[in-house]
Design a protein around this nucleic acid. Structure first.
Length: 195
DNA sequence: ATTGGGATCGTCT
DNA sequence: GACGATCCCAATA
């Protein structure tokens, strides 16, 4: 397992996003394979960065390889990774992962044994990702809190050759931009994860 | 299998 | 003061 280096994220979000499919998200003891992502850029009316820097989106305008976590609908967190160069205002939203390890903790945090991480709000709950991780550098080992592993890793499985590509979900603007990429749906996130 | 409404609060106008 | 890059449950067919 190799931690993805900053150079990986230092490209435009629509380039980075499909390359993140099949990579492994790790937070503490929990790990999951990335199966669904979306790209957001500054000249993109659906993006938080579209209208420029605010307190919430400031991390998007910083260095690549940092987490951008935001809170929405009064109850959900969503996790992104900043891409591009400083001041770009780009990020890739991680929308779904297939659980790989630390499943018991995910079940406990989700309060159910299926649909653990097949949505952006579900996976942040399963992985205990919240605003305290906003701005975290996931490329520099030394910057991680409490010796807790937080990052995205390559375990040798390449991205899918022909990922499914569709418009993005849950947005009002930029509805036609095909910047959502999906790998084949996994088993554990849709059905029973406790088998 | 699909649809519709309610929950809930940080962020921005 | 309004509205989300959402989720869950209940009610339909």
């Amino acid at each position: 397992m190799q931690r993805l280096p900053r150079e990986f994220f230092g490209r435009n979000a629509p380039i980075v996003a499909p390359l993140l499919l099949n990579k492994v998200l790790v937070v503490g003891q929990s790990a999951g394979r990335i199966t669904e992502v979306e790209a957001y850029t500054q000249d993109d009316p659906a993006s938080h960065s579209f209208k420029g820097v605010t307190r919430r989106n400031a991390v998007m305008f910083g260095r690549a390889g940092h987490l951008y976590v935001y809170f929405t609908y009064g109850m959900h967190h969503c996790a992104n990774v900043v891409t591009g160069v400083v001041d770009d205002g780009q990020a890739v939203l991680i929308r779904a992962v297939d659980p790989m390890s630390g499943v018991a903790a995910m079940v406990q945090r989700r309060g159910r044994s299926n649909h653990l991480s097949d949505g952006p709000g579900k996976l942040t709950q399963a992985f205990a990702i919240d605003l305290t991780l906003n701005g975290l550098d996931i490329c520099d080992e030394a910057a991680l809190p409490d010796d807790t592993t937080v990052g995205i890793f390559d375990d040798g499985l390449p991205p899918p050759d022909q990922p499914q590509v569709t418009p993005r979900i849950g947005i009002r603007a930029g509805v036609d931009t095909p910047w959502r990429w999906m790998a084949a749906a996994g088993i554990t996130c849709r059905g029973r994860a406790d088998t």
